[in-house]
């Protein structure tokens, strides 16, 4: 369980998050949704201790996350950031190998190698293992970064727009993989812009607007025409296919 309590954050004199309190239930996928500039990435950054809140705290179970030493924290929680640019000329295999650093700062063990290879397979990167990151397409780079995050093997995964640049097939692969990991007990929090994908895969939804929690609950509770109209200021139709909401803009 990861719990945000009263999180407040400002940047450049502007309040980005205002007393946000939200939960991400254990062993579930929580989708963070909301319009651009709502504070989703900032909330994820605070949960991952990449930024310090002005007020409030992030709890991992009963523990205050701020009190956990960073190397231990990195074995329990990982994060995928938006628009990450990798400058060194690494191969895909090298980059994914960095995911094992919190567990083993030295050279990779056989077990580390096995995990790295499994994560590359999960992200369909086997054929690209020896390619330099800077020669890959945006979608391939995104999959390599996700594989690095997966290789960290933490109980909590925070992902900021993991489906950026991904085609339908790879988006489906990533979401199915995250689903399998959540069923295995991992807690996953992910920013998603595609509400139908959020409805299909998430167990819990937190909708942010103007730095505040606008709605929180199951996809059925949050993805209603009324809530989405207030959230995005846009009219939508919500249909149901196989019992899951499908959101269509009008």
């Amino acid at each position: 369980m990861i719990r945000c309590q009263n999180l407040t954050f400002s940047a450049g004199g502007k309040r980005i998050l205002d007393a946000v309190t939200a939960d991400a239930p254990p062993g579930r996928i929580t989708a963070l949704v909301g319009p651009n500039g709502a504070g989703k990435s900032t909330l994820l950054g605070l949960m991952g201790r990449l930024k310090e809140p002005e007020r409030g705290q992030v709890m991992l179970g009963a523990e205050d996350a701020a009190g956990i030493p960073r190397p231990i924290f990195a074995r329990r929680l990982t994060a995928l950031r938006q628009a990450t640019r990798i400058t060194p000329r690494l191969t895909v295999c090298d980059l994914v190998g960095f995911g094992r650093y919190p567990h083993n700062p030295g050279h990779l063990t056989k077990e580390d190698q096995r995990i790295v290879e499994a994560c590359m397979t999960d992200m369909a990167l086997d054929d690209l293992a020896d390619r330099q990151i800077d020669t890959l397409s945006g979608g391939q780079q995104q999959r390599a970064l996700i594989a690095m995050v997966l290789a960290q093997e933490t109980e909590i995964l925070l992902l900021d727009e993991p489906l950026n640049n991904l085609d339908l097939s790879h988006a489906r692969r990533v979401m199915n993989n995250l689903s399998a990991r959540s069923r295995a007990g991992r807690t996953i929090v992910t920013v998603l812009h595609d509400l139908t994908i959020a409805a299909r895969f998430a167990d819990h939804v937190v909708a942010l607007k103007d730095g505040r929690v606008h709605a929180e609950g199951s996809p059925d509770e949050v993805f209603t025409p009324e809530v989405l109209r207030e959230l995005y200021g846009a009219e939508v139709e919500v249909h149901r296919i196989n019992g899951k909401p499908v959101i269509l803009p009008i």
């Binding site: 960073r70 074995r75 990450t84 990798i86 650093y101 995050v149 960290q152």
Partner: peptide
């Protein structure tokens, strides 16, 4: 040297991988 390899991935990635 090894920590510099991690720092080269950028501030956020270095922190995610457990570096202060």
């Amino acid at each position: 040297a090894r920590r510099l390899d991690v720092i080269a991935l950028g501030r956020d990635n270095a922190m995610i991988l457990g570096l202060e």
